[in-house]
Simulated assay, not measured.
Amino acid sequence: MSYETDHLGFLLNAQSWDKGWTETVAKNLSLNLEPLDLEIVESLRAFYFEFDLSPPMRPLVKHIKTTFGADIGNSIWLMKRYGESPARVLAQLAGLPKPKNCL
């Protein structure tokens, strides 16, 4: 399947997302997807469609902490798993727009 992206590699239409998109992005980022990653992606998509917001870091951490618990809902765990910009990486995996204030 072909996906339409912006110049930064973010999916242009969040509605055209599917699991194949996440797998392609993960492969390009050398990230081995685990079931938890897919659960996080699904929860971020639900967050986006509820609040019309691709969450930057602080709301992202709060959302993940509320949804999945404090063990992974913290910036240290997220940065170890997704690199120095977890909000950007997770938004890209979830087929969401680049969060505001993300480099």
Rank of each mutant, 00 (worst) to 15 (best):
L103M: 05
R58P: 00
L31C: 00
M57K: 10
V61K: 08
L11K: 07
L31V: 13
H7R: 14
A46T: 15
F49E: 02
L78R: 07
S16R: 11
M1R: 12
E39H: 11
V25R: 10
K62I: 13
L33H: 10
F68K: 08
A46D: 15
L33C: 09
S85N: 15
K98F: 00
M57W: 00
S16M: 02
N101S: 13
P97F: 03
L103D: 13
A94C: 01
M79G: 13
G69D: 07
M57E: 14
T5H: 06
M1Q: 11
E23R: 11
R81V: 05
T24L: 15
N101F: 14
T22C: 08
Q15G: 00
K27D: 11
E84C: 00
R58Q: 10
N28H: 11
L12E: 14
K80S: 13
I40C: 05
T67E: 15
R45P: 06
L93Q: 08
L38E: 15
L53Q: 15
M57A: 11
D18A: 07
V25K: 11
T5I: 15
N74I: 06
L90M: 10
F49S: 08
L31H: 15
W17C: 10
M79D: 00
A70L: 10
W77D: 03
K19E: 15
S2M: 09
C102Q: 14
F49Q: 08
N28D: 14
N13F: 07
G95K: 03
S43M: 09
F51T: 13
V61I: 15
A91H: 04
